[in-house]
Amino acid sequence: MIVTVDDAYLTRIAEVSAALRANGMHIDQALDDIGVITGSIAGTDSRSLANVEGVKAVEPERSFQLPPSDSPIQ
């Protein structure tokens, strides 16, 4: 999961992390400079994270994949 923190909480990202942890999220990284917290949560109810104070949005993590090295279009 990826959480983006409310603008008003950018300086209090540690608090938001703690609150997310209390709601069952395992925190990977707190990226202070851009106000993003990454991690994972067991089960399907990631919506509970959206209600945590200081959370602006929650998204599942996407992955990217380049085409094979010998593919003409990169």
């Binding site: 990826i2 990226l31 990454t38 993590e61 990217f64 380049l66």
Partner: peptide, 13 residues
Amino acid sequence: GRGTDTQILAGIS
């Protein structure tokens, strides 16, 4: 050639 949102965001940060 694979990456995740997290890795990219960490790079931006």
